[in-house]
């Protein structure tokens, strides 16, 4: 490639990065505006909106509610996903491809449709809309990611590790908890954090399956429909900072553990 195309491509990259980051930066900035309505220019500044977020009991409750849903649905997705990955790795059997395909399907079903399918199914089963319905739909949606990540990691575990443990007197269950699980830890942390972020950020499933209590994205959505205000900016900014910190932490710790285990 010529030097010109290289420069051009680097320009495209930075323009794209700007396109991604600038709106978020401006959004954070707007949370400091000392006025009720959103818009530029910002003439006077205040911290009140941010303080308000932490004082608002509804926001704090919703934050806790979303976190709880994220943790529980992630826990389910991790158990199910790891189970499926362990079942499908290193075995050839009739119907394996079908099970794998069906397992991965929820990742590509359009969001609205899966939300509506769950809504109808929950009604048929008699599950009230609310926390458990949301948790279940999030878990189903997140299992494919866990399966993919865990299967990738599992395929690099030498067969001899499990065999050596069996040889020394371990039954398959002990092998899983003492050999396989420690090896999978980095993958499970990574997949788990990714699932938590997906669940915490999910709108469409939480919206269609929610009861009276909104999750955080649903709350922001409701506030947005009644008008933009710096309050929403402050809430969004808090969410943004938390998710970014969690994401970066997960990425780093995953790398560290992986390096340690692979040395």
């Amino acid at each position: 490639m010529t030097r010109h195309t290289r420069i051009l491509m680097s320009c495209i990259y930075w323009a794209f990065a700007l396109y991604l980051l600038l709106p978020l930066a401006l959004m954070m900035l707007m949370g400091f505006k000392d006025a009720r309505f959103i818009g530029f220019p910002i003439t006077s500044w205040t911290l009140d909106w941010y303080i308000g977020v932490f004082a608002d009991r509804q926001v704090m409750f919703t934050f806790g509610y979303s976190t709880l849903i994220a943790i529980l649905s992630t826990a389910i997705a991790l158990v199910v996903g790891t189970w499926i990955a362990v079942t499908l790795t290193g075995r050839a059997f009739f119907g394996r491809a079908v099970i794998l395909g069906l397992t991965l399907l929820p990742a590509v079903i359009p969001g609205v449709i899966s939300a509506i399918a769950f809504r109808i199914y929950a009604r048929v089963l008699g599950i009230e809309p609310g926390m458990w319905a949301i948790i279940w739909s999030h878990a189903v949606h997140n299992v494919p990611f866990v399966v993919l990540v865990v299967m990738a990691r599992l395929s690099t575990l030498p067969r001899s590790q499990a065999e050596a443990a069996r040889d020394l007197g371990a039954d398959p269950l002990v092998v899983f908890f003492r050999i396989t699980m420690p090896y999978l830890t980095p993958a499970m942390i990574g997949a788990g954090v990714f699932c938590m972020l997906l669940s915490f950020d999910d709108f469409v499933r939480s919206y269609f399956l929610g009861g009276y209590d909104p999750t955080l994205p649903v709350l922001i959505f409701a506030k947005l429909r009644s008008g933009m205000s710096p309050e929403v900016n402050a809430i969004s900014t808090v969410v943004l900072v938390l998710t970014a910190v969690l994401g970066i932490w997960a990425e780093r710790s995953m790398r560290r553990i992986k390096k340690q285990a692979n040395r």
Partner: peptide, 23 residues
């Protein structure tokens, strides 16, 4: 990093840019 932030928050960021009083 921007993609770890949820759908709604990012839509809101776009609204701030594109609004009549937007950036």
């Amino acid at each position: 990093i921007p993609f770890w932030v949820g759908e709604i928050v990012r839509i809101y960021a776009v609204m701030i840019i594109l609004g009549n009083n937007g950036a």
